[in-house]
Design a protein around this nucleic acid. Structure first.
Lengths: 348, 348
DNA sequence: ATTATATGCTGAAACGTTTTAGATCGCCGT
DNA sequence: ACGGCGATCTAAAACGTTTCAGCATATAAT
């Protein structure tokens, strides 16, 4: 049994499809359709359980009520929480979300963007890993509304929503210094051009310098995104055994998780042997042992705002581009050592 | 500048749209199109960067190359890992995924299903929370291909892919018994009709009985999905302080996480004061302190198989319905107490 | 009696594909 | 001279909407 169409409704009622279309789009009054006729239409719509065909509408209207979400990996809780909040907002507004993972690979990201545009999505929310300014310019000039999340591309005016990466890293580093640690290592993940990482690194460096401590490049390690596990051990051994660092600052949750795993395997105690802190807080950091000191980002807020800005942009292509930087929060927990332990360290 | 369409290609080349359509669908040879003509078409397609319009194709063909994914909550890592593996498989095959969260609410799930069908998805992968057999029958009779994951509905023949819930819970309970614990509590989450929970509970009960231990209903607690936090404290206090249980078996990762948090807040030590184990393993359980003993499910495999079965079903509506139950794995870690600690308990 | 105005509706085209039935043409065999 | 045939290609309809221009009819104004 075929699905009922507009035409079916029209035929049953002896009116034109045009009329039915106007009614079901709530333009009945505006278009001066008799209210009794409108009622008849609605009754039959209910009775035959008529549902408009999205493809036809899409073809005719040139929109799809779908938005594309491009992130590194949906199974990373940072993104899945953002995805959830985007989804909630989207369904409130009659939009659906297609998500695709780029794995931080610019080539893959490029293909995904093309593919989603071909699909006719009405807009894009993406955590871009483009390094090339021209790539993002091309996207902007392609005239599809989009909002960047988590990172942006300097020198190109786009919408974006992200966290105060610089300030978060600055404050966290200062906190470590205040605990008496001076040998503080930093681990960040590639691609290294990401503003997220750049700003966090800068925050760390500035905090050191402003407090009279030199920045030692030996203590700053880069870990490739696609091979975190393998490189973690080498990096940690070097930092802890050779460089004798007192603290390690992991610049995202994947690094922290891999770091914890490696430290455990190497039998290095936290915070007794080394103290650690994390950028990006995840649920378990609150009650693992030790609990992990971290900078938490307002993930739900990022998703929510990104969708709102996108929707605004879809409805008004000339709307001003918005740049939003949301405050982060320091969660002081056990993994960075207490002032007590710090006393022992300094005096012991 | 408008996008180039089939007609544009046809006009430029002085051929009919029909011909172009056949060529770009790789039916040129089959339809007896001159190979030089075919080449000309392809050249122009490249040059004008022609991309077919999905909506038009969708309207004409009655398919969308989109599949719908319905789960409780994408931000739960159990689902997001499954989602990732479905996505990988899907994009290999030219499909995209729209996900929607049901929050374990049958009413919401029903709306989502309707909405996705109206959208014209070609198939559905869902972790259904339907209690009513008729609801799932209705879905089956609606003639849209679908595959259940994580749970199924007894008495209705459908495709499904899930884990050996009974066996996992049985083995885990037996392990606890083998450590000398006899007062073992169980916490499960509503909706309580879910086969996932039912089978795990059954596994626990059978393991007790087969080893000569009574099943005490007082030790089995139900926690409502939408209010885990609040109910956890009451339940744990009762179990530990009043019932003096030695072990707690949490039946999914959300419960375990909430449980750990609450235990920490109540200053109850694991495994010294109470030992705990979890159904469903997540990354952090491997290196939190204590590490958490758990039953892990083959999440990637579940997603992969679910997609393959769905694809098969889409391509052949009469394909046999497949029921797949995948083996689980016991991860013995620290949270259940070592045999050493066990000796102290029994003799101390 | 004519013209203007408002009310309520319709016909037809358009969106971009795919498919079916058949057209055209040159050539072969008789 | 003619039917048949293979090789290439086309015309037109169909998928289900939305929108634009305009048609009736009735009522009101002149």
């Amino acid at each position: 049994m075929k699905k009922t169409s507009l035409k079916d409704i029209a035929k049953h009622l002896g009116v034109s499809p045009a009329l039915v279309s106007m009614v079901i789009n709530h333009r009945g009054d505006e278009k001066g359709i008799n209210s009794e006729t409108q009622k008849k239409v609605w009754d039959l719509v209910k009775k035959l359980n008529y549902k408009p065909n999205y493809a036809a509408r899409s073809l005719r209207l040139g929109n799809s009520k779908i938005i594309g979400l491009i992130i590194a990996d949906i199974s990373n809780v940072f993104y899945s929480v953002i995805a959830k909040s985007i989804e909630d907002k989207a369904s409130e507004n009659g939009y659906s979300i297609i998500f695709m993972s780029s794995e931080e690979d610019p080539k893959k990201e490029d293909e995904i963007i093309k593919m989603l545009i071909d699909r006719g999505v009405d807009g894009l929310i993406l955590s871009t890993c483009f390094s090339d300014r021209d790539q993002i310019r091309k996207l902007r000039d392609s005239n599809i509304p989009f909002v960047l999340i988590d990172r942006y591309v300097p020198g190109v005016k786009t919408n974006y929503v992200l966290a105060e990466n610089y300030q978060g890293a600055f404050d966290m580093t200062r906190h470590l210094l205040s605990l008496g640690y001076t040998k503080i290592a930093l681990l960040y993940v590639t691609p290294s051009h990401l503003t997220t990482m750049k700003h966090r690194i800068l925050g760390y460096q500035d905090a050191l310098r402003k407090n009279g401590h030199p920045v030692k490049n030996k203590l700053i390690k880069e870990i490739p995104y696609d091979n975190i596990r393998k490189n973690m051990e080498t990096a940690l051994k070097d930092l802890i055994l050779t460089e004798k660092v007192q603290s390690i600052f992991f610049l995202n949750n994947k690094l922290t998780i891999a770091g914890l795993e490696t430290l455990k395997r190497l039998n290095i105690r936290v915070p007794q042997d080394v103290s650690i802190v994390s950028f990006d807080d995840i649920e378990l950091f609150k009650f693992s042992y030790p609990t992990i000191t971290s900078v938490s980002q307002p993930k739900e807020e990022i998703g929510k705002l990104a969708f709102e800005i996108l929707l605004n942009q879809i409805n008004d292509r000339n709307a001003d581009k918005q740049q939003i930087t949301l405050p982060v929060k320091l969660n002081i927990r056990e993994s960075c050592g207490s002032s007590m332990q710090n006393l022992f360290r300094v005096w012991g």
